[in-house]
């Protein structure tokens, strides 16, 4: 069992190093999405909580329920963008099927030019 864990840890370290070198060259991967009217902008990280949520002064007029729903909608899009971007970046060093199994799915590029490094 210990050997298995050690082998798994070694494999994770190797992939981590390859990914780390790859990401260092390209910069951190994030996804970005905004409401059409700019009310809410979210910058998301793949597989993690949003890095930032920005709300315009006009968005406050949506009220607590409307604004909460809009933040959830935009955060979801931003995270899908981030996952797609990460998938595209890592599929050169990790098997894409493994990325999908890990929950890093490659979405359709239907959103705005939303993602960025």
């Amino acid at each position: 069992m210990d050997d298995d864990v050690e082998r798994a840890a070694r494999k994770v370290r190797d992939v981590e190093q390859a990914v780390s070198e790859h990401v260092t060259r390209g910069g951190p991967v994030t996804g970005r999405a905004s409401s059409p009217d700019g009310a809410v902008t979210v910058v998301a990280t793949p597989g993690g909580p949003p890095q930032s949520v920005e709300v315009s002064a006009a968005a406050l007029r949506m009220g607590p329920h409307g604004l909460a729903a809009e933040i959830m909608r935009i955060a979801d899009r931003a995270q899908r963008n981030a996952n797609t971007r990460l998938h595209q970046t890592l599929e050169r060093v990790v098997d894409p099927r493994e990325l999908t199994a890990m929950g890093i799915e490659r979405g359709t590029d239907d959103d705005e030019s939303g993602w960025r490094r």
Binding site: P64, H65, A68, I71, M72, A75, D76, Q79, G103
Partner: peptide, 14 residues
């Protein structure tokens, strides 16, 4: 994974 499943904002926050 950081997905927001529910979000409630208090009117005082706005």
């Amino acid at each position: 994974k950081g997905e927001i499943k529910a979000l409630h904002l208090h009117p005082a926050l706005l």
